[in-house]
Write a protein that binds this DNA or RNA. Structure first.
Length: 458
RNA sequence: GGCCCGUUGGUCAAGGGGUUAAGACACUGCCCUUUCACGGCAGUAACAAGGGUUCGAAUCCCUUACGGGUCACCA
């Protein structure tokens, strides 16, 4: 049975690249009817951030990635936290020494000329590390996406397996844990490609079966570099804060370094669990394109019902519009299909609370032939009729009929009366809705007031 | 710098010896429209370069260039 794993270290937020690795591991396991395990790699005591563990659980949950085994839910291969497996690493490293594939090293960390390999020390009294003994020759490993890669062993270093603090290094703990957790497929970023031969040497020395490697191409930022904390495009949380939906982020990310079997791009997680496969993985690094993420996010809003959208938009709406006399549901609906991110709600509705200052030019519209003059004419004639309009009948259908009747009575095209109203109510060149919608959300009193203001400008 | 990996439009990418070299985002234009959007239609735009191999190369090989990764008692 296929077993994959996600092995983050609890050092902070969830990097987009790591999230994608988790996602791919999860999807692959689901697709193949396998198991996806979560293992916490907390061997670096110095970088350990206690809250990060919860962050990992939370992120996976929000993203919809469900692990089958892990520290929180257990499993047959626990414990799933490396610090709790500490003893086994030392034991295995010493076994490796017996096998002639490792040795004790008493040098200080970072020390250059190390003679410990030649010295063949017995277990030292004082502080020591254990290093891997790289044999001469060359090593070939096979990767499902990159194929066969061969390197000269002379390029490899006698890497540290057990640190002086008794903790294993990432590279060693990984090998030991993957073996004892029966991991069959190791998915990780391609930055680990250079250290993979050392893994093989370790597996070979132990006589353990070598797992299938699946290295994933890197995700780059628009400038060709790495995604960065500073630019705010490195972490899953960054994008949530910017008003992106978890589903859209996940959907977008899965398309980075992997392409679906058909031309479709919008997939639910459940659908991805059916179609994801290593065949679609690519070797070349890909650039994270915010514009496409935005488009995709917008698609998710459009596909959503107004009812489902409303609670998502509510907090942003509350920040954007303070006045109480506006129907929130109507606003929410008005905005739903017009935004790429929830954050845009504020900007798109900035005319609701306070009418922006504008000049007579606003009423110019080449296409419908509106001019400040026609606008003034229409609005001044409309105003008294509008004031006479019964407030209790103020709703879209009636408003629209009222306006079209008015236009007909004046003998002009609808747009010649609708356009100036839209301008008067929004004070902007574009607004999330036309005249009827705006009249409807503002209600009679505010609408009349704004039209009066417009007449003053005109 | 050594080693490793990569290179199809601005971006994501399909395609793996014979294609008019898909599709999506972005961009442009037109249509629709009660603004702007949405939607519909159309368009601009690519096989890094040079050598081979082959009847035939985006696809295979080599070289170069460029980009990235890696060379920690970090992960």
């Amino acid at each position: 049975m296929m077993r994959t794993r996600f092995a983050p270290s609890p050092t902070g937020f969830m990097h987009i690249g790591n999230l994608r690795t988790a996602l791919f591991g999860y999807l692959l396991a689901r697709r193949m009817g396998g198991v996806f395990a979560l293992r916490i790699e907390d061997t670096d005591i110095g970088r350990y951030v206690p809250e990060a563990l919860d962050k990992i659980y939370e992120t996976l949950k929000i993203a919809g990635i469900k692990h089958d085994e892990g520290p929180d839910i257990g499993g047959n291969y626990g414990p799933y936290v490396q610090s709790e497996r500490k003893d086994s690493y030392l034991k295995q490293a010493e076994a490796l020494i017996e096998l002639g594939a490792a040795y004790y090293c008493i040098c200080a960390p970072g020390e250059e000329a190390c003679n410990c390999r030649a010295a063949g020390l017995a277990r030292p009294e004082g502080p020591y590390a254990i290093r891997q003994l790289i044999p001469p020759g060359q090593t070939t490993f096979s990767d499902l996406v990159y194929g066969e890669i061969t390197v000269e062993n002379s390029e490899l270093e006698d890497q540290v397996l057990i640190k002086q603090d008794g903790m294993p290094t990432y590279n060693f703990a990984n090998v030991v844990d993957d073996h004892f957790m029966a991991i069959t497929h190791v998915l990780r970023g391609s930055e680990y490609l250079p250290s993979t031969p050392k893994y093989n040497l370790l597996y070979e020395a132990f006589g353990w079966p070598i797992p299938t490697y699946v290295h994933l191409p890197l995700i780059l930022s628009a400038d060709g570099g790495k995604l960065s904390k500073r630019r705010g495009d490195a972490f899953f949380e960054d994008f949530l804060e910017k008003g992106f939906l978890p589903e859209a982020i996940v959907n977008y990310i899965v398309l980075l370094g992997w392409s679906p079997p058909d031309n479709r791009e919008i997939y639910t997680l459940a659908e991805l669990e059916q179609v994801f496969g290593i065949e679609g993985l690519s070797k070349a690094p890909s650039t994270f394109d915010l514009a496409k993420l935005k488009w995709m996010n917008g698609e998710y809003f459009k596909a959503m019902s107004g009812k489902n959208f409303e609670p998502l938009a509510a907090p942003y709406l509350a920040a954007a519009v303070k006045r109480e006399d506006i129907n929130r549901s109507a606003l929410s609906l008005m905005v739903k299909d017009r935004i790429a991110t929830l954050l845009e709600i504020r900007e798109i509705l900035d005319f609701i609370d306070v009418l922006p200052e504008y000049g007579a030019d606003l009423f110019m519209n080449k296409k419908n032939k509106s001019t400040p003059e026609t606008a003034k004419d229409m609005l001044s004639k409309l105003l008294p009729e509008m004031e006479a309009f019964p407030a209790e009948n103020w709703e879209s259908g009636a408003i629209y009929k009222f306006l079209t009747d008015f236009a007909e009575a004046q003998g002009v095209k609808n747009s010649l009366v609708l356009w100036p109203i839209r301008c008067a109510l929004s004070g902007k060149e574009s607004s999330p809705g036309g005249a009827t919608e705006l009249l409807n959300v503002f209600g009679k009193n505010e609408s009349v007031a704004r039209i009066k203001q417009a007449l003053e400008v005109l």
